[in-house]
Write a protein that binds this DNA or RNA. Structure first.
Lengths: 351, 351
DNA sequence: ATGAAAGCGCTAACAT
DNA sequence: ATGTTAGCGCTTTCAT
């Protein structure tokens, strides 16, 4: 414990924040800062004796590297930023969990923000997040404001991998890496399943949440496929509010029609589970009087009686694949990858 | 568009990353960097004409501030780091959503990581996250490794607000701000409810997930209260695996006992919902043959028949309060606050 | 195997 | 109201 010889003069204009720096460690180890810096990154390059001294100094001081300084000096950051509509939705929460796990293994950190399904907020958040010079930026969906698109392009050109997840462009329109599936096709598949079961009067129920482009596109695909098959198809929006409760009200809404649909697909499993419960409360038999089809394969879906037939997007996998993508793509000139994940139909009793 | 006079000499040792800097903006606006810097932080302090010129230069260049540089120079960061066991668990996902929303409003960004209920991983993550010199660090629970505790203390002393959420110390043992409730007391309340209903043979079912200290403490409180009342009480662990499925198996396990319990509390609502379904599959009447009590008030709980009686922790509120706490506490000398949130019993049909 | 000098992009402290 | 200077903590070059 050498006494600090520097504590005499009147305290002038110090700016430091009191934390232990590389120089403190270096002084304690009897070397200069750069040697400690090297040891930290490639322990092999310093002499064994030096390594020991540095190691000792490191634990004696409790040094925590300042990453801002590191990024600023090296230009290589370890932050990945991810934007999802909502952190609480099980779909995105699981995707983030998958992403997070893979990033942690690679020594990267995850900065998150929720857009609330607003493209304007998304743009503002992209702008804010890019300030951290992230190694990669993962966004949800393929629709963005022109301003956001511009920011993403510049980021991409600047070496920041951009990944769009949960959705796909038919033709890599934006020029970013993608991992997801076609929601139009998913909607078509939903309709085709019900048509194959012999239904000719169908309905698609949107959620009251605005801005969910993917759910909307599933509806578009559903309606298109139903019409192409010459079936009757209606589209309605669930009541606002807590989604299972909203779903409960759906069968009642459906019955008011003159020729009520015999099968109904819903924007998500919460709504669909609600609809199942609501139908039963009305004395309707599912699937005989009303077949029901959900989206998401939430845990609940398998445990109702009858079980809910639904589409099962690989929530976790999307996050993991996004991680793999951004981990593997250091070459900005390479053509961004397009990973198509499967979204299988899980057949249960409700259809 | 003045032509760059600096493009002749052989490219020597440039380090920049090509992005637009404050100096580029300043040059375009005919001022120096500091003036632009000032304008960005307090638009009012520059002359109106200058402001216009800067504004024009800003949008012409598409400037995105480099936050690393800003933090390094100012010592004031805008990152908040949060550690939860799992990003996908609805409990924590909602807390993060609440936190995120409030932080966004305050212009702060959220760095997250999942500990997987491992205190060792938590320590490693705290170390990594502290490197970003976060303004605040939000951790889950009050139990930490000695190393983690040391890091948290140092961070706290260095001006980083530390918030422990979801749990409380009886006596601010760690010295950090807290927002949560006593899980022992919650467990006691669960037992007392069942005792008040006349049950004398109780059971508490832990989840198979290891490291959930809070669930364990609820169990401790439950057992203690039951024993204090002179009731019979058993404690068992649910099977591993997907929680609703695991819960389904619980009533069967309970029945193997010589004098089976008449009431059972479970570590979480997923397990409890499973138990409810499992009991019904066995022909048991709920609550007459077996009363069931959950924890969490997951959406599903209200929609089973009978509804699941459960404890409803204010998931979202905990995140919001944590945000309020860390937003309000710039004074490191102040005594950290201790926010006790309510965790009400929601009475439904299962008990 | 180690060090010296310079600089990443920004802002705090002094000017003026 | 604007500019100059120095420096945040680290890593890059370029020596030795």
């Amino acid at each position: 414990m050498p006494i600090d010889p520097d504590n005499d003069a009147a305290p002038r204009q110090r700016r430091g924040h009191g934390r232990v720096t590389l120089r403190d460690v270096a002084a304690a180890a009897g070397v200069t800062a750069i040697t400690v810096s090297r040891y930290l990154r490639q322990p092999g390059v310093v002499a064994p004796a030096t390594a020991d001294a540095i190691q000792a100094a490191l634990s004696a001081t409790g040094y925590v590297p300042n990453k801002q300084a590191g990024v600023l000096a090296s230009g290589r950051g370890s932050i990945v930023a991810a934007l999802v509509p909502n952190l609480a939705h099980s779909i995105f929460a699981e995707t983030l969990q998958g992403l997070s796990r893979k990033l942690e293994a690679a020594g990267l950190e995850l900065l998150v923000a929720a857009t609330g399904y607003s493209l304007e907020r998304e743009e503002a958040q992209i702008r804010a997040l890019l300030g951290w010079a992230p190694r990669a930026l993962v966004v949800t969906g393929r629709h963005h404001t022109p301003g956001a698109l511009k920011l993403l392009r510049e980021a991409h050109d600047g070496g920041c991998t951009v990944v769009e997840m949960w959705d796909l462009h038919a033709r890599r329109q934006n020029g970013f890496a993608q991992v997801g599936f076609s929601h139009r096709a998913a909607g078509r598949r939903m309709a085709e399943h019900l048509l194959a079961r012999g239904h000719r009067r169908l309905a698609y129920v949107d959620s009251a949440v605005e801005g969910d482009d993917r759910a909307r596109e599933r509806g578009d695909g559903f309606v298109a496929a139903a019409q192409a098959a010459g079936a009757e198809v209606r589209r309605l929006t669930a009541p606002a509010g807590e989604p299972i409760t909203a779903g409960r009200a759906v069968p009642g809404l459906l019955r008011t029609a003159e020729r009520p649909p015999t099968a109904c697909a819903l924007a998500n499993d919460h709504l669909a589970c609600g609809a199942l419960l609501g139908a039963q409360a009305l004395g309707l038999r599912v699937p005989d009087d009303l077949a029901l089809l959900g989206f998401g394969d939430f845990e609940l879906a398998a445990h109702l009686a009858p079980g809910l037939t639904t589409l099962a997007p690989p929530r976790r996998e999307i996050g993991e694949r996004a991680a793999t993508l951004l981990l593997a793509e250091p070459d900005p000139a390479a053509v961004p990858e397009r990973v198509v994940v499967d979204c299988p139909l899980v057949l249960r009793g409700s259809s």
